[in-house]
Every structure is written in structure tokens, then in C-alpha cells.
Design a protein around this nucleic acid. Structure first.
Lengths: 212, 212
DNA sequence: CCGCATCCCATGTGATACTG
DNA sequence: CAGTATCACATGGGATGCGG
């Protein structure tokens, strides 16, 4: 049950003993978006076997990374303060991984929490500072996100709502990476504009951009 | 042979598919210190089975993270530019892991490369800026490191050499974490002063400090 | 030697089924 | 809903072998 150890004494070895097991960092990623129930985690990690999810949750608790939310009638998992300190790690890892993403395969899902963290990884506060506050509604796969940018602050939440620009499509990551121009994305149908102007999609592309 | 995938399209999932397998990040950690031969990697990862090391090296090559150094008669592994972009990730992960390190168990080894990255994780350039240039020689376990701090720059290399302070002992991490005061470390023998003053050990402790 | 490849067994993982 | 139980299978660990 205890994570297998590497026989080394050092920061990186200790870290991978705590969160290096398969699925562990994806659980942490989703919990960085917010506290989640067991079933929500399972839904956000469609291919994780339930016994593995249960085992990881125990290990992460034993490691002091997550805990069951106290004084809550239902079971809710949340990060401890120490677990929350993984945020820069996960954001950096996500940014690094974004760089080598190619086009999504049909079998690959894009979940709300995953997309949320990708947007956080790619968000450029300095750029957003000079742009007017904007609300975007994005639909990708089954996930609906409401993305509010206001100066240097970013707020992403699930669900729908009023937005300046509403769009859908699985080409969002490639737009963020600069591989896909906003105009072309609309022209080829890789991104479908539901409401709002193409200019706002360009603004989105400037606000969220993977910095090589 | 291809890393098992998670069925998700996103930055973090992609990243853990590339470097999430057991031992992979420790190999990257050591290669961040410098190019290494197969045998050097094996020596720096004492408990890795040779077949696993061979498998990981292939996977990391396939992922574009490492390569065999070109125009070299002997086999040398080094990071690609993309692999080198993992440095902030590994440093952040190392710093996070340092926070939950307790005392080293006897069976745990401290390797030169591991210690080097821990020092990089804990180095505080702003603090060092106001301190005189100093050379430290540290011996911990079997590893000998020559640590040169000059203003905001840090240089760590293996081996011995002239130093202002020379010390040994397995208590260095706890000194860095502030759990152990320099005076006490000397008094209890957790750190043995070979050459130089206790004041220099305090300077070391201020220069390398894990920032919670 | 160095850079792996093979073999065998223990352990971890994945799919499915099941329970309080 | 929140997990256990079970079992087939893939992967990891340790020892050993082997060609260049």
C-alpha cells in the first residue's frame, strides 16, 4: 500500500514516491480545480478502474496530500495545504505537456477539469491586463466551461452562462499553441462560433497561449 | 513499449504519458546535471534493474526527451532541448518533495546528482547576492560535491577542490530545511566540519534554504 | 569492462462483478 | 454512491548472460 520507494534520499525521489504512481497526478490535477466526490473523480478519469482510484485516494491521504473534507455529510475529497502546493508543479508539467500535444484522437476525451487546468497553464496575465474584461463560453467534447478573464485574473468554472463569445470544437488546444489561426479555425470548422465575433476568438488566442 | 496512455487529451495527461513511468523522472533529474553514460546512470540509480533502465532510455528517446549524443564514439545520453525544458518541473517537484523529507534512513543513498538538484532547488539567488563569493566542499554518503556560489550564480560539480568550507554528514538536508541550526548540527555531530568556520556553515544554511 | 538482453517470479494494474 | 473482491495479465525487480 505504501508507495514503492526508490531507495534514495532527495527531493525528487521523495516527490515521485508520493505522487509518481500511475493516475496520482491526474487526481491531483482534478482536485486543484476544486473538491470532488468519488464519483466525480471517476467520471473525470473515465478509464481509471475503481479499485485503482480507491487505492490512490488512500495513498494520497496517507501521504498528506488529500483528505476527506471534514464536517461534510457526504464524502468529498480535497487537497490539503501541502497538496495545494503542487499547483505550480502541475501547471508547469501541463505547460510542458501542451508543447508536444498534437491533434486529439477520436478516442481521447477532454474533460472539464483537464481543460480548466490547460487554460490555467496557458493563461497570460500580462497580456490579459491590456485587454477588456471578457467572458467566454467554451464547449469541447462533453465539457462546458465558462471562462472569465478580468485583467490579470482568470476564473474558469463549469457550466454555461452569459458570455461575449461562445464557441465549440476540439481545435482549442491547437489555437492555444498558435498552430491554428483563429480565422482558419473558423474557416475550416475546427472551431465553431456559436455567438460573438471572430475578433473575440483572436483575443482568446492571445490571452491563452502556450509560451515555448 | 509505448507508454500506456490515459485516454485523455490534455497537457498534464500528455506529460505523465511521457515521463510518468517509474524511474523516468529520476533519469531526467540526473541528465539535468549533465550528459551521462549508461553505467553512470545505473550507478546513480542503484536500485534500477538494467532492463528497466534500458527500456526507459528507449521510451525517453522515442518521446524526444533524450538522445544519444551524436559524433561521440562512446554512448552518451543527453537531454534534447525539449527534455531540458523539464528543468523547472523537476526543480519545482524537488522543492515540493524536500518539504516532506524527514531524516534519511540508513538504507537510503544520497547520490551526487540527486544532491546537486536538491541544492539547485533550494538555492536562493537573492540571498546569495548579498554574500561574498564562497566555495563549499560537501561530502555526503559517497558523493563529493564542490559548490561554488558567486553572487546570484550557482555552480555545483562533482569531485573535490579548494574550498572555504569543507564539511560532511547526512544532516545537510535538514539544515537546508531549517530544521537543524548550524551550531546544533556541529554540536551533535550531524554535520562534521572538516575545514572552515561554523559561521560559514551558517552562511551555507542561509544560501540554501527551502522556502515553504 | 560497457551496454544492454533474457529469464523468472513478485507485485501492480485493469476489467468486471459485487456489496453495504 | 462509494467503494471491495476477484482474477487474468502487464510491468517491475533481481540475477545472470553475452556480444562488442
Amino acid at each position: 500500500m505504501a508507495a514503492r520507494d526508490y531507495g534514495q534520499y532527495g527531493g525528487v525521489a521523495r516527490a515521485v514516491e508520493l505522487v509518481g504512481e500511475r493516475w496520482a497526478l491526474l487526481i491531483v490535477r482534478d482536485l486543484l480545480v476544486g473538491p470532488r466526490r468519488y464519483g466525480e473523480l471517476a467520471a473525470g478519469l473515465p478509464r481509471i478502474p475503481s479499485n485503482i482510484l480507491a487505492a490512490r485516494l488512500k495513498e494520497l491521504q496517507a501521504g498528506g496530500i488529500i483528505r476527506r473534507a471534514p464536517r461534510s455529510r457526504i464524502v468529498i475529497y480535497e487537497l490539503t495545504p501541502y497538496g495545494r502546493e503542487l499547483e505550480p508543479v502541475v501547471l508547469a508539467l501541463g505547460a510542458w505537456g501542451l508543447a508536444s500535444l498534437d491533434e486529439p484522437r477520436d478516442e481521447q476525451v477532454i474533460t472539464a477539469d483537464s481543460m480548466t487546468m490547460d487554460l490555467r497553464s496557458a493563461f497570460r496575465p500580462q497580456i490579459a491586463l491590456d485587454l477588456p474584461a471578457t467572458a467566454y463560453a467554451a464547449r469541447v467534447g462533453g465539457a462546458e466551461l465558462l471562462v472569465r478573464v478580468d485583467g490579470p485574473t482568470l476564473d474558469v468554472r463549469r457550466g454555461d452562462g452569459p458570455a461575449d463569445l461562445s464557441f465549440a470544437g476540439r481545435g482549442i488546444h491547437r489555437l492555444i499553441k498558435g498552430e491554428l489561426d483563429a480565422q482558419r479555425a473558423i474557416a475550416t470548422g475546427e472551431i465553431e462560433l456559436l455567438e460573438g465575433s471572430g475578433e473575440l476568438l483572436e483575443r482568446f488566442g492571445r490571452t491563452f497561449r502556450f509560451a515555448a
